[in-house]
């Protein structure tokens, strides 16, 4: 059942994304009901897929790469809906949803069941993983807002408005989206990392502090902390802050995917090797 629903979700996402294109090209003030409907159906079938998997293994399906990517894609779609309903940015979907499609595709192409491990049961870990995922979702939004800011800023500085000038929101809106998502993402990331430390110190033996994934996530966290404190103190705005947000998300990718290959304890190794 799970696989069938994932494929359905994937098709709905693809349809939804394709239907956004004409609205963006023709500069409609809002998305068409058809594209919103397709994306909503994608979200619903995706939720069903996750629910089936969760019932089968008896917990949140996030413990291998495939399920984790799928779950993350789901959260990003959910975030898209929240942001769209608040800001009505028609082009937003084209920045956020290709990632959703890609991640769902990867998880659909690897239909092996997620493995079950007793170490993934328990409250601390649920809080750890849940917070990290919410944090990553919000910080992806920060990244998207930063990219939109940089493109719009470039259009304005070039003084020769082209397509993006008409289709992207104002710098103010990019900046607001950027700051709000950072404000939301950073606490979740912090909680996630702290609970991870607590859990690791209780469960793991040996020098867990040197686990590559843990080191990478501390580095990521520092980037966002610097970004946040400089923003609050008033120093960082505009281009510089946007570049840093992009750096931060690159660090997340390294933590999420890259360091997992080297990490001894984060369990993704056997699964990742199978991804072509």
């Amino acid at each position: 059942m799970h696989d069938a629903f994932v494929w359905m979700a994937l098709s709905f996402y693809a349809l939804g994304i394709l239907l956004i294109v004409p609205s963006v090209v023709r500069r409609r003030p809002s998305l068409s009901p058809a594209s919103l409907g397709a994306l909503g159906a994608g979200l619903a079938t995706h939720a069903a897929a996750l629910a089936f998997e969760a019932m089968r293994i008896g917990r949140l399906p996030v413990s291998d790469v495939r399920s984790a990517l799928s779950f993350y894609a789901f959260l990003v779609t959910l975030a898209f809906f929240f942001v769209y309903l608040r800001y009505r940015i028609v082009s937003l979907g084209l920045f956020m949803l290709p990632l959703v499609f890609l991640l769902t595709l990867i998880s659909a192409l690897h239909p092996e069941a997620s493995f079950d491990s007793s170490s993934f049961r328990g409250g601390w870990l649920l809080v750890h993983i849940g917070s990290i995922f919410l944090g990553y979702t919000a910080l992806f939004l920060t990244f998207v807002a930063a990219v939109m800011y940089l493109i719009q800023e470039r259009e304005l500085k070039s003084k020769q408005p082209r397509g993006f000038y008409y289709r992207l929101p104002s710098l103010k809106v990019c900046e607001e989206l950027y700051y709000r998502s950072l404000l939301l993402g950073l606490p979740f990331l912090s909680i996630g990392i702290l609970t991870g430390f607590v859990w690791a110190s209780r469960t793991w033996k040996g020098p867990w502090e040197f686990d590559p994934k843990i080191l990478a996530s501390i580095f990521t966290w520092l980037i966002y902390l610097v970004l946040f404190s400089n923003r609050v103190s008033g120093g960082w705005r505009g281009r510089r802050a946007a570049y840093f947000a992009i750096l931060g998300f690159a660090a997340i990718l390294v933590t999420f995917v890259g360091a997992s290959m080297l990490s001894g304890e984060h369990g993704y190794i056997p699964k990742l090797r199978e991804i072509p």
Partner: peptide
Amino acid sequence: TALGSAAVSVSYAAVELAKKIFG
């Protein structure tokens, strides 16, 4: 369509740009 949405005089262009920057 966005037929009437973009400024076609210099002084309105200034307003439009201000809105692109400040919301």
